[in-house]
Design a protein around this nucleic acid. Structure first.
Lengths: 218, 218
DNA sequence: TCGTGATGTAAGCAATCGCTGACTTGTCGA
DNA sequence: TCGACAAGTCAGCGATTGCTTACATCACGA
């Protein structure tokens, strides 16, 4: 249990409102503190799970006093819910097809890119978070809604129409593609199983592309 | 939290050594007690995760006193390790290709059957357990070894040979198939995301078959 | 019949968890 | 300059956790 406490950079008088200073800030900025907490919490929740991460760990990662978690997010579950909401938002803006609908090939490339960025990237952590559960009904509802929203976006790119029952199988196929993504990211990040954990982006691109095309194209 | 305590059958003088009486037994049989504990523990660990399940829950599910967990398995982690070992054994005997090697179609049908049995079946719980981690090094090593052994078995059926480096990509493809299995089971069982959680076996068979064939056949 | 080891039971300890309340410190407008 | 409020700190509470110890009970051979 490497409790990596920030050694240096803890006492420097950084008063400049740097826009992306998430971990390790210097105080008196509620908004920045909240962001730092969500950022640190999401990392812990995604990698270690809800129960395994303690609020003291999160606070230490963010360089913040523990009591502030309850002040800003009421409870640990409230913080988890905030993580879910932020992930839901980011995932929505990232996966929204901006211009051309039904450009399946382009969407598939995006999916592959998300997967191969694991285990080092930050995006796959968002996906992992969607698999975590706190037992809280609110957070679980957000998670389900996010996942189903993500499914509909992907399915729409593959030709699914909400008003056409004949395209219903596409919805299921899109969700199977998401399940594949989640499974691969899980094996690469959390389980660290080889060879998939050590495979390069180039190694993964071809077989993943075949899977996604088998599910979404045609 | 339905704490299903055994109502009846708890006081009957069942002295017959029934071979499969796992949950709810009547005492004075150490082997049966151990089996009941492993059975109950695996269920909890697979569905709720390691940290979220308490030894008191497991003992209650098995109808056994809490102290027996430490007596028979030393610690909670020891019980988790026993669950991993049992799952590893069962998975090994189940997936071992008995007669004909390289019969890919038959193996694929087995994989599909494993997946569609979720979320009600008991087999998918074994798979879910492989995604759980206790933080214990021993259990994690067993898990990785099991997963990689499973990968090699599946890859061998698809034409992979350990002594032929040219078939190395097949190994990765087999593991991607396993990742897909795990992802789908996760979404069906733990996350309960629709439509995949409510899809019938018939709905899943076709797209899953396409995915597995894209990865393993050819 | 009785004693001995195996099996099961009950109570509680030490550690850790999330969380709270009282307090201090910094910031900023009047 | 100073008061008022937000932001952050600190110590500790009640509850729960895994685990241990001492005790009770059953099976079984001499």
């Amino acid at each position: 249990m490497s409790n990596e406490t920030p050694t240096s950079t803890a006492t420097l008088p950084d008063t400049t409102p740097h826009p992306d200073d998430d971990l390790i800030r210097s105080g008196r900025d509620a908004a920045a503190t909240r962001r730092a907490l969500v950022r640190a919490a999401r990392r812990r929740f995604a990698t270690d799970g809800y129960r395994a991460t303690t609020v003291r760990q999160i606070a230490a990662d963010a360089g913040v006093n523990v009591a502030l978690i309850n002040r800003y997010f009421v409870s640990k579950e409230g913080l988890f819910e905030a993580c879910m909401l932020r992930t839901s938002d980011e995932l929505d803006t990232q996966t929204r097809t901006p211009h051309r609908p039904s450009d399946v090939a382009e969407v598939i490339d995006k999916l592959i890119e998300h997967v191969v960025n694991s285990p080092d990237g930050d995006d796959p952590l968002q996906l992992l978070l969607l698999l975590r559960s706190s037992g809280d009904e609110n957070a679980d509802r957000i998670r389900r809604r996010t996942m189903e929203h993500f499914t509909r976006q992907l399915a729409a790119a593959a030709g699914w129409r909400a008003d056409d029952p004949q395209t219903a199988p596409i919805l299921l196929r899109a969700q199977l593609a998401i399940a594949t993504m989640l499974g691969v990211v899980m094996l690469r990040t959390s389980a660290a199983v080889h060879p998939v954990a050590s495979a390069s982006a180039h190694d993964l691109a071809e077989p993943l592309g075949q899977v996604f095309r088998a599910l979404l194209a045609g």
